[in-house]
Simulated assay, not measured.
Amino acid sequence: MAKMVLTSEYVGINSVDYSDNVRKAELTVEVEDKDVTTFGSDGWTEVLGGLKSGELKVEFLQDFAAGQVDEDMWALLGSVVTFEVRPTSAVVGTSNPKFTGSILVNGWNPIEGGVGDEASVSVSFPVSGAVTRATS
């Protein structure tokens, strides 16, 4: 198995490449576990998969200039928009899959930090609908 260090992750939101403003991105997907245990389950819990959900967490380095992170995210507040994340900014392929879907921009922290901190913003956007994985 190849080992990898994330040095050029691609993060796109609403068709805009924010990779130059992102320090960290994390896409999580999960499936609810539904307990279907019965008296006939021999003393073991039985579960089935329920609804799927996901979340895109992003740590932005803040930029208040026109047409940059803060202005863009402020305008998207309350909207469902597309996203794409990849391990690297290279072309999509079997060793660089892309994950796409839609997120709800349900919050924004325009100012976050203390004295001497870099201007950064950490947000978590819930996925709306399916997440797909593609290698082409």
Rank of each mutant, 00 (worst) to 15 (best):
K3S: 11
M4V: 14
V5S: 10
L6E: 11
T7K: 14
S8Y: 05
E9N: 07
E9V: 06
V11T: 11
V11Y: 07
G12F: 07
I13E: 08
N14K: 08
N14T: 03
D17G: 03
D17K: 02
Y18W: 13
Y18I: 02
D20P: 06
D20F: 02
D20A: 13
A25E: 03
E26P: 00
E26G: 02
T28M: 01
V31W: 04
V31A: 12
V31P: 00
D35A: 02
D35Y: 04
D35C: 03
T37V: 00
T37Y: 00
F39W: 08
F39I: 03
S41E: 03
G43A: 05
G43K: 05
W44K: 12
W44R: 09
T45N: 13
L48Y: 10
G50F: 12
L51N: 11
K52I: 01
S53M: 00
S53G: 07
S53Q: 03
L56Y: 01
L56A: 02
V58N: 00
E59F: 00
E59R: 00
E59G: 00
F60V: 01
L61T: 13
A65L: 12
A65K: 14
Q68P: 02
D70I: 04
M73I: 08
M73K: 05
M73R: 07
M73D: 02
W74M: 14
L76I: 09
L76Q: 14
G78F: 03
G78D: 06
S79A: 14
V80L: 06
V81K: 15
T82S: 15
T82A: 13
E84M: 14
R86M: 15
R86I: 08
R86S: 15
P87V: 10
T88M: 11
S89A: 13
S89T: 10
A90G: 07
A90D: 13
V91R: 11
V91T: 13
V92W: 05
T94S: 07
N96M: 00
P97M: 01
F99C: 03
T100W: 01
L104D: 10
V105G: 08
V105N: 08
N106L: 10
P110D: 11
P110Q: 09
I111E: 11
G114F: 11
V115Q: 13
D117I: 01
E118D: 10
V121W: 02
V121D: 03
S122E: 08
F125M: 09
P126A: 12
P126W: 08
V127S: 04
S128G: 06
S128R: 14
T132Y: 01
A134T: 10
